[in-house]
Design a protein around this nucleic acid. Structure first.
Lengths: 202, 202
DNA sequence: TAATTTTATCACTGCGCGGTGACTTTTTTG
DNA sequence: CAAAAAAGTCACCGCGCAGTGATAAAATTA
Protein backbone atom coordinates (compact mmCIF):
# COMPACT_ATOMS: atom_id res chain seq x y z
CA UNK A 1 0.00 0.00 0.00
CA UNK A 2 1.04 3.50 -0.84
CA UNK A 3 4.57 2.76 -1.75
CA UNK A 4 4.95 5.85 -3.94
CA UNK A 5 8.69 6.31 -3.77
CA UNK A 6 8.58 9.36 -6.02
CA UNK A 7 10.41 8.59 -9.19
CA UNK A 8 13.63 10.45 -9.69
CA UNK A 9 13.91 13.11 -12.34
CA UNK A 10 16.68 15.62 -12.39
CA UNK A 11 15.10 18.36 -14.45
CA UNK A 12 11.84 18.05 -12.57
CA UNK A 13 13.66 18.46 -9.28
CA UNK A 14 15.63 21.39 -10.62
CA UNK A 15 12.34 23.03 -11.55
CA UNK A 16 10.84 22.34 -8.15
CA UNK A 17 13.83 24.01 -6.54
CA UNK A 18 13.54 27.06 -8.75
CA UNK A 19 9.85 27.39 -7.93
CA UNK A 20 10.59 27.03 -4.25
CA UNK A 21 13.27 29.70 -4.50
CA UNK A 22 10.77 32.07 -6.07
CA UNK A 23 8.15 31.28 -3.46
CA UNK A 24 10.52 31.82 -0.58
CA UNK A 25 11.73 35.09 -2.03
CA UNK A 26 8.19 36.29 -2.63
CA UNK A 27 7.02 35.33 0.82
CA UNK A 28 9.99 35.96 3.09
CA UNK A 29 11.92 38.57 1.15
CA UNK A 30 15.58 38.44 0.36
CA UNK A 31 16.57 38.46 4.01
CA UNK A 32 15.20 34.98 4.55
CA UNK A 33 16.31 33.72 1.19
CA UNK A 34 18.93 30.99 1.62
CA UNK A 35 19.76 27.41 0.82
CA UNK A 36 18.19 26.03 3.95
CA UNK A 37 14.87 27.78 3.49
CA UNK A 38 14.71 26.92 -0.19
CA UNK A 39 15.53 23.26 0.33
CA UNK A 40 12.94 23.09 3.07
CA UNK A 41 10.32 24.60 0.79
CA UNK A 42 11.27 22.35 -2.10
CA UNK A 43 11.20 19.27 0.10
CA UNK A 44 14.64 18.11 -0.94
CA UNK A 45 18.20 18.30 0.23
CA UNK A 46 20.07 21.57 -0.07
CA UNK A 47 22.94 19.82 -1.76
CA UNK A 48 20.82 19.64 -4.90
CA UNK A 49 20.71 23.41 -5.04
CA UNK A 50 24.45 23.42 -5.55
CA UNK A 51 24.34 20.54 -8.02
CA UNK A 52 21.55 21.76 -10.24
CA UNK A 53 21.74 25.53 -9.95
CA UNK A 54 25.29 26.58 -9.14
CA UNK A 55 24.15 27.57 -5.67
CA UNK A 56 22.30 30.71 -4.70
CA UNK A 57 23.94 32.84 -7.35
CA UNK A 58 22.72 30.58 -10.10
CA UNK A 59 19.22 30.56 -8.69
CA UNK A 60 19.21 34.34 -8.42
CA UNK A 61 20.37 34.58 -12.00
CA UNK A 62 17.55 32.32 -13.15
CA UNK A 63 14.99 34.32 -11.23
CA UNK A 64 16.37 37.52 -12.70
CA UNK A 65 15.95 36.11 -16.20
CA UNK A 66 12.36 35.15 -15.47
CA UNK A 67 11.73 38.63 -14.15
CA UNK A 68 13.02 40.20 -17.33
CA UNK A 69 10.67 38.02 -19.35
CA UNK A 70 7.79 38.92 -17.07
CA UNK A 71 8.46 42.61 -17.52
CA UNK A 72 8.47 42.25 -21.28
CA UNK A 73 5.12 40.56 -21.19
CA UNK A 74 3.61 42.88 -18.61
CA UNK A 75 4.42 45.93 -20.70
CA UNK A 76 3.55 44.39 -24.03
CA UNK A 77 0.06 43.42 -22.88
CA UNK A 78 -2.02 46.55 -23.45
CA UNK A 79 -1.84 46.45 -27.22
CA UNK A 80 -4.75 47.45 -29.35
CA UNK A 81 -4.62 50.95 -30.69
CA UNK A 82 -1.19 52.56 -30.78
CA UNK A 83 -0.63 55.65 -28.68
CA UNK A 84 -1.39 58.90 -30.40
CA UNK A 85 0.99 61.11 -28.45
CA UNK A 86 4.16 60.85 -26.46
CA UNK A 87 2.20 61.78 -23.35
CA UNK A 88 -0.17 58.90 -23.89
CA UNK A 89 2.70 56.55 -24.59
CA UNK A 90 4.40 57.30 -21.31
CA UNK A 91 1.15 57.28 -19.41
CA UNK A 92 0.47 53.81 -20.71
CA UNK A 93 3.91 52.61 -19.79
CA UNK A 94 3.74 53.98 -16.29
CA UNK A 95 0.25 52.67 -15.62
CA UNK A 96 0.96 49.25 -17.10
CA UNK A 97 4.06 49.04 -14.96
CA UNK A 98 2.16 50.12 -11.89
CA UNK A 99 -0.55 47.53 -12.35
CA UNK A 100 1.79 44.69 -13.17
CA UNK A 101 4.08 45.47 -10.30
CA UNK A 102 1.27 45.73 -7.82
CA UNK A 103 0.16 42.23 -8.72
CA UNK A 104 3.60 40.66 -8.53
CA UNK A 105 4.98 40.21 -5.08
CA UNK A 106 8.12 38.54 -6.35
CA UNK A 107 8.95 41.54 -8.51
CA UNK A 108 8.42 43.81 -5.52
CA UNK A 109 10.83 41.78 -3.45
CA UNK A 110 13.46 42.00 -6.14
CA UNK A 111 13.07 45.76 -6.37
CA UNK A 112 13.46 46.06 -2.62
CA UNK A 113 16.52 43.87 -2.86
CA UNK A 114 18.00 46.14 -5.46
CA UNK A 115 17.92 49.18 -3.23
CA UNK A 116 18.93 47.38 -0.07
CA UNK A 117 22.04 45.56 -1.22
CA UNK A 118 24.69 46.58 -3.63
CA UNK A 119 26.02 43.30 -4.91
CA UNK A 120 26.98 42.89 -8.53
CA UNK A 121 24.17 40.40 -8.92
CA UNK A 122 21.57 42.92 -7.96
CA UNK A 123 23.10 45.61 -10.11
CA UNK A 124 22.60 43.38 -13.08
CA UNK A 125 18.93 43.02 -12.23
CA UNK A 126 18.50 46.77 -12.22
CA UNK A 127 20.43 47.21 -15.45
CA UNK A 128 18.37 44.54 -17.20
CA UNK A 129 15.15 46.19 -16.09
CA UNK A 130 16.33 49.56 -17.31
CA UNK A 131 17.25 48.09 -20.67
CA UNK A 132 13.89 46.38 -21.02
CA UNK A 133 12.05 49.61 -20.27
CA UNK A 134 14.08 51.61 -22.73
CA UNK A 135 13.69 48.93 -25.37
CA UNK A 136 9.93 49.03 -24.90
CA UNK A 137 9.92 52.79 -25.35
CA UNK A 138 12.10 52.59 -28.43
CA UNK A 139 9.89 49.90 -29.93
CA UNK A 140 6.51 51.44 -29.17
CA UNK A 141 7.44 55.00 -29.78
CA UNK A 142 7.14 54.84 -33.52
CA UNK A 143 7.62 58.41 -34.70
CA UNK A 144 6.22 60.04 -31.60
CA UNK A 145 8.62 62.50 -30.05
CA UNK A 146 8.56 64.39 -26.77
CA UNK A 147 8.12 68.15 -27.04
CA UNK A 148 11.35 70.05 -27.57
CA UNK A 149 13.06 71.34 -24.46
CA UNK A 150 11.96 68.42 -22.33
CA UNK A 151 14.50 65.86 -21.17
CA UNK A 152 12.26 62.85 -21.67
CA UNK A 153 14.59 60.18 -20.26
CA UNK A 154 15.00 62.14 -17.04
CA UNK A 155 11.31 62.87 -16.68
CA UNK A 156 10.46 59.26 -17.42
CA UNK A 157 12.94 58.16 -14.80
CA UNK A 158 11.22 60.30 -12.19
CA UNK A 159 7.79 59.00 -13.15
CA UNK A 160 8.73 55.34 -13.24
CA UNK A 161 10.78 55.65 -10.08
CA UNK A 162 7.78 57.23 -8.40
CA UNK A 163 5.50 54.41 -9.46
CA UNK A 164 8.02 51.87 -8.29
CA UNK A 165 8.54 53.40 -4.90
CA UNK A 166 4.83 53.85 -4.33
CA UNK A 167 4.17 50.18 -5.00
CA UNK A 168 6.90 49.22 -2.57
CA UNK A 169 5.66 51.65 0.05
CA UNK A 170 2.13 50.41 -0.42
CA UNK A 171 3.16 46.82 0.13
CA UNK A 172 5.30 47.69 3.13
CA UNK A 173 3.19 50.20 4.99
CA UNK A 174 0.00 50.82 3.06
CA UNK A 175 0.42 54.55 2.72
CA UNK A 176 2.75 57.23 1.43
CA UNK A 177 2.78 60.85 2.52
CA UNK A 178 -0.70 60.65 3.84
CA UNK A 179 -2.18 58.99 0.77
CA UNK A 180 -3.67 55.66 1.80
CA UNK A 181 -2.71 53.11 -0.82
CA UNK A 182 -5.95 51.19 -1.01
CA UNK A 183 -8.06 50.83 -4.14
CA UNK A 184 -9.25 54.41 -4.00
CA UNK A 185 -5.75 55.64 -3.30
CA UNK A 186 -4.36 53.81 -6.30
CA UNK A 187 -7.01 55.40 -8.46
CA UNK A 188 -5.81 58.79 -7.28
CA UNK A 189 -2.20 57.84 -7.98
CA UNK A 190 -3.07 56.70 -11.49
CA UNK A 191 -4.87 59.95 -12.15
CA UNK A 192 -1.87 61.87 -10.83
CA UNK A 193 0.45 59.96 -13.13
CA UNK A 194 -1.79 60.80 -16.05
CA UNK A 195 -1.78 64.47 -15.06
CA UNK A 196 1.95 64.59 -14.61
CA UNK A 197 2.64 62.96 -17.95
CA UNK A 198 0.25 65.13 -19.87
CA UNK A 199 1.40 68.18 -17.94
CA UNK A 200 4.97 67.74 -19.06
CA UNK A 201 4.44 66.15 -22.46
CA UNK A 202 0.99 67.23 -23.52
CA UNK B 1 52.84 55.45 31.58
CA UNK B 2 49.56 55.70 29.76
CA UNK B 3 47.33 54.30 32.40
CA UNK B 4 44.20 55.90 30.97
CA UNK B 5 41.61 53.60 32.35
CA UNK B 6 38.76 55.53 30.71
CA UNK B 7 36.57 56.93 33.41
CA UNK B 8 33.13 55.47 33.55
CA UNK B 9 30.17 57.53 32.51
CA UNK B 10 26.86 55.98 31.76
CA UNK B 11 25.32 58.68 29.58
CA UNK B 12 28.54 59.09 27.65
CA UNK B 13 28.63 55.37 26.94
CA UNK B 14 24.99 55.37 25.94
CA UNK B 15 25.78 58.12 23.46
CA UNK B 16 28.76 56.26 22.07
CA UNK B 17 26.57 53.24 21.51
CA UNK B 18 23.95 55.28 19.70
CA UNK B 19 26.58 56.82 17.46
CA UNK B 20 28.04 53.40 16.74
CA UNK B 21 24.60 52.09 15.90
CA UNK B 22 24.12 54.89 13.40
CA UNK B 23 27.53 54.34 11.88
CA UNK B 24 27.00 50.62 11.46
CA UNK B 25 23.60 51.16 9.90
CA UNK B 26 24.96 53.78 7.52
CA UNK B 27 27.91 51.68 6.49
CA UNK B 28 26.64 48.11 6.52
CA UNK B 29 22.93 48.60 5.99
CA UNK B 30 20.21 47.06 8.06
CA UNK B 31 21.25 43.53 7.17
CA UNK B 32 24.45 43.82 9.16
CA UNK B 33 22.86 45.79 11.95
CA UNK B 34 22.94 43.82 15.19
CA UNK B 35 24.09 43.89 18.77
CA UNK B 36 27.42 42.28 18.03
CA UNK B 37 28.39 44.66 15.25
CA UNK B 38 27.26 47.69 17.22
CA UNK B 39 29.10 46.69 20.38
CA UNK B 40 32.21 46.03 18.34
CA UNK B 41 31.98 49.46 16.72
CA UNK B 42 31.32 51.17 20.04
CA UNK B 43 34.20 49.36 21.71
CA UNK B 44 32.12 48.12 24.60
CA UNK B 45 30.21 45.08 25.66
CA UNK B 46 26.91 44.28 23.97
CA UNK B 47 25.24 43.88 27.31
CA UNK B 48 25.26 47.65 27.61
CA UNK B 49 23.05 47.92 24.57
CA UNK B 50 20.34 46.11 26.45
CA UNK B 51 20.95 48.09 29.64
CA UNK B 52 21.02 51.57 28.20
CA UNK B 53 18.83 51.32 25.11
CA UNK B 54 16.25 48.57 25.58
CA UNK B 55 18.05 46.49 22.99
CA UNK B 56 17.91 46.90 19.24
CA UNK B 57 14.35 48.14 19.24
CA UNK B 58 15.19 51.02 21.52
CA UNK B 59 18.18 51.95 19.42
CA UNK B 60 16.10 51.85 16.28
CA UNK B 61 13.53 54.05 17.93
CA UNK B 62 16.18 56.58 18.90
CA UNK B 63 17.60 56.62 15.40
CA UNK B 64 14.14 57.09 13.97
CA UNK B 65 13.62 60.10 16.21
CA UNK B 66 16.90 61.62 15.06
CA UNK B 67 15.88 61.03 11.48
CA UNK B 68 12.65 62.88 11.96
CA UNK B 69 14.56 65.84 13.39
CA UNK B 70 17.02 65.72 10.51
CA UNK B 71 14.20 65.81 8.01
CA UNK B 72 12.66 68.85 9.67
CA UNK B 73 15.95 70.68 9.48
CA UNK B 74 16.78 69.56 5.96
CA UNK B 75 13.50 70.87 4.63
CA UNK B 76 13.45 74.02 6.71
CA UNK B 77 16.87 75.13 5.47
CA UNK B 78 16.16 76.93 2.18
CA UNK B 79 14.38 79.90 3.70
CA UNK B 80 14.78 83.35 2.31
CA UNK B 81 11.99 84.45 0.04
CA UNK B 82 8.76 82.57 0.36
CA UNK B 83 7.53 80.65 -2.64
CA UNK B 84 5.32 82.59 -5.00
CA UNK B 85 3.35 79.69 -6.39
CA UNK B 86 2.29 76.21 -5.47
CA UNK B 87 4.48 74.88 -8.26
CA UNK B 88 7.51 76.61 -6.81
CA UNK B 89 6.64 75.42 -3.35
CA UNK B 90 6.58 71.78 -4.37
CA UNK B 91 9.63 72.15 -6.54
CA UNK B 92 11.53 73.49 -3.55
CA UNK B 93 10.34 70.68 -1.35
CA UNK B 94 11.28 67.99 -3.84
CA UNK B 95 14.69 69.47 -4.62
CA UNK B 96 15.54 70.12 -0.99
CA UNK B 97 14.58 66.56 -0.17
CA UNK B 98 16.61 65.24 -3.05
CA UNK B 99 19.72 67.12 -2.02
CA UNK B 100 19.46 66.31 1.65
CA UNK B 101 18.78 62.66 1.01
CA UNK B 102 21.64 62.32 -1.40
CA UNK B 103 24.03 63.58 1.26
CA UNK B 104 22.73 61.37 4.03
CA UNK B 105 23.67 57.75 3.76
CA UNK B 106 21.96 56.88 7.02
CA UNK B 107 18.67 58.23 5.77
CA UNK B 108 19.06 56.20 2.59
CA UNK B 109 19.60 53.04 4.59
CA UNK B 110 16.48 53.68 6.59
CA UNK B 111 14.44 54.21 3.46
CA UNK B 112 15.74 50.97 2.02
CA UNK B 113 14.87 49.29 5.27
CA UNK B 114 11.33 50.59 5.06
CA UNK B 115 10.64 48.93 1.75
CA UNK B 116 12.50 45.73 2.52
CA UNK B 117 10.95 44.77 5.83
CA UNK B 118 7.47 45.19 7.11
CA UNK B 119 7.92 45.31 10.85
CA UNK B 120 5.86 47.67 12.95
CA UNK B 121 8.99 49.57 13.82
CA UNK B 122 9.70 50.39 10.24
CA UNK B 123 6.10 51.31 9.54
CA UNK B 124 6.37 53.94 12.22
CA UNK B 125 9.43 55.41 10.52
CA UNK B 126 7.51 55.77 7.29
CA UNK B 127 4.48 57.25 8.99
CA UNK B 128 6.62 59.79 10.85
CA UNK B 129 8.31 60.86 7.63
CA UNK B 130 5.00 61.25 5.89
CA UNK B 131 3.70 63.38 8.73
CA UNK B 132 6.79 65.59 8.71
CA UNK B 133 6.46 66.18 4.98
CA UNK B 134 2.79 67.03 5.21
CA UNK B 135 3.42 69.30 8.17
CA UNK B 136 6.07 71.14 6.18
CA UNK B 137 3.68 71.64 3.30
CA UNK B 138 0.91 72.84 5.59
CA UNK B 139 3.28 75.27 7.30
CA UNK B 140 5.01 76.69 4.23
CA UNK B 141 2.02 76.77 1.98
CA UNK B 142 0.58 79.97 3.33
CA UNK B 143 -2.37 80.75 1.13
CA UNK B 144 -0.98 79.12 -1.98
CA UNK B 145 -3.30 76.53 -3.44
CA UNK B 146 -2.86 73.99 -6.21
CA UNK B 147 -4.91 74.59 -9.35
CA UNK B 148 -8.43 73.18 -9.21
CA UNK B 149 -8.90 69.71 -10.60
CA UNK B 150 -5.46 68.55 -9.52
CA UNK B 151 -5.12 66.02 -6.72
CA UNK B 152 -2.09 67.63 -5.13
CA UNK B 153 -1.43 65.04 -2.42
CA UNK B 154 -1.38 62.26 -4.99
CA UNK B 155 0.83 64.16 -7.40
CA UNK B 156 3.19 65.15 -4.61
CA UNK B 157 3.37 61.53 -3.54
CA UNK B 158 4.45 60.50 -7.02
CA UNK B 159 7.07 63.25 -7.19
CA UNK B 160 8.54 62.64 -3.77
CA UNK B 161 8.45 58.90 -4.23
CA UNK B 162 10.29 59.34 -7.49
CA UNK B 163 12.97 61.46 -5.88
CA UNK B 164 13.32 58.95 -3.10
CA UNK B 165 13.65 55.95 -5.35
CA UNK B 166 16.11 57.68 -7.62
CA UNK B 167 18.40 58.50 -4.72
CA UNK B 168 18.27 54.89 -3.57
CA UNK B 169 18.87 53.58 -7.07
CA UNK B 170 21.74 55.99 -7.52
CA UNK B 171 23.41 54.82 -4.34
CA UNK B 172 22.86 51.17 -5.17
CA UNK B 173 23.65 50.98 -8.85
CA UNK B 174 24.52 54.44 -10.11
CA UNK B 175 21.89 54.60 -12.81
CA UNK B 176 18.17 54.36 -13.45
CA UNK B 177 16.51 53.57 -16.74
CA UNK B 178 19.57 54.55 -18.67
CA UNK B 179 20.12 57.85 -16.89
CA UNK B 180 23.54 57.79 -15.25
CA UNK B 181 23.19 59.25 -11.78
CA UNK B 182 26.40 61.24 -11.67
CA UNK B 183 26.56 65.01 -11.18
CA UNK B 184 25.33 65.71 -14.68
CA UNK B 185 22.59 63.13 -14.33
CA UNK B 186 21.36 64.68 -11.10
CA UNK B 187 21.19 68.03 -12.82
CA UNK B 188 18.95 66.47 -15.43
CA UNK B 189 16.78 64.91 -12.76
CA UNK B 190 16.42 68.21 -10.92
CA UNK B 191 15.40 69.90 -14.14
CA UNK B 192 12.88 67.15 -14.81
CA UNK B 193 11.40 67.58 -11.34
CA UNK B 194 11.06 71.29 -12.00
CA UNK B 195 9.36 70.62 -15.32
CA UNK B 196 7.02 68.05 -13.86
CA UNK B 197 5.98 70.29 -11.01
CA UNK B 198 5.41 73.34 -13.16
CA UNK B 199 3.74 71.17 -15.80
CA UNK B 200 1.11 69.96 -13.40
CA UNK B 201 0.82 72.99 -11.10
CA UNK B 202 2.03 75.88 -13.19
C1' DT C 1 38.48 53.01 55.41
C1' DA C 2 34.56 49.90 54.74
C1' DA C 3 30.09 48.96 52.60
C1' DT C 4 27.29 49.62 48.75
C1' DT C 5 25.87 50.78 44.36
C1' DT C 6 26.85 51.77 39.72
C1' DT C 7 29.34 50.63 35.51
C1' DA C 8 31.42 47.45 32.55
C1' DT C 9 33.25 42.82 31.16
C1' DC C 10 33.40 37.92 30.57
C1' DA C 11 32.11 33.38 29.46
C1' DC C 12 28.71 30.79 28.00
C1' DT C 13 24.28 28.76 25.71
C1' DG C 14 21.47 27.67 21.85
C1' DC C 15 20.32 28.52 17.21
C1' DG C 16 20.32 28.81 12.21
C1' DC C 17 23.18 29.69 8.65
C1' DG C 18 26.26 28.30 4.30
C1' DG C 19 28.88 24.72 2.83
C1' DT C 20 30.89 19.85 2.10
C1' DG C 21 32.35 14.88 2.15
C1' DA C 22 30.61 10.39 2.61
C1' DC C 23 26.89 7.67 2.07
C1' DT C 24 22.52 5.12 0.21
C1' DT C 25 19.17 4.26 -3.30
C1' DT C 26 17.46 4.25 -7.82
C1' DT C 27 18.13 4.07 -12.73
C1' DT C 28 20.64 3.11 -16.69
C1' DT C 29 23.94 0.59 -19.23
C1' DG C 30 26.65 -3.51 -20.66
C1' DC D 1 22.03 -10.19 -13.83
C1' DA D 2 25.97 -7.35 -12.51
C1' DA D 3 28.44 -3.03 -12.98
C1' DA D 4 28.42 1.83 -13.56
C1' DA D 5 26.31 6.19 -13.36
C1' DA D 6 22.93 9.27 -11.82
C1' DA D 7 19.84 11.07 -8.18
C1' DG D 8 19.07 11.97 -3.64
C1' DT D 9 20.09 11.85 1.65
C1' DC D 10 22.69 12.31 5.85
C1' DA D 11 25.76 13.91 9.28
C1' DC D 12 28.77 17.05 10.24
C1' DC D 13 31.90 21.52 10.39
C1' DG D 14 32.82 26.32 11.49
C1' DC D 15 30.79 30.63 11.99
C1' DG D 16 28.29 34.59 13.66
C1' DC D 17 24.26 35.70 15.71
C1' DA D 18 20.92 37.21 19.99
C1' DG D 19 20.60 36.80 24.56
C1' DT D 20 21.94 35.99 29.68
C1' DG D 21 23.87 34.96 34.44
C1' DA D 22 27.86 35.49 37.09
C1' DT D 23 31.69 38.36 38.02
C1' DA D 24 35.12 42.15 38.19
C1' DA D 25 36.26 47.01 38.66
C1' DA D 26 35.33 51.67 39.58
C1' DA D 27 32.65 55.28 41.87
C1' DT D 28 29.80 56.66 45.61
C1' DT D 29 28.26 56.71 50.09
C1' DA D 30 28.57 55.83 55.11
Amino acid sequence: MDKREKQRDRSRTADTILEAAKTVLAEQGFAGWGVNAIARAAGCDKQLIYRYHEGLDGLAEAIGAEMAAWLEEALAAPEGTPATSYAELMTRLALAYLGALRANRLAQRILAWEVAEESLLVKRFAAARGRAMMAWIARERGDLVPPPGVDAPAANAVLIAGVQNLVLAGAASGAFMGVALDDAGWERICAAVRSLASGIYG
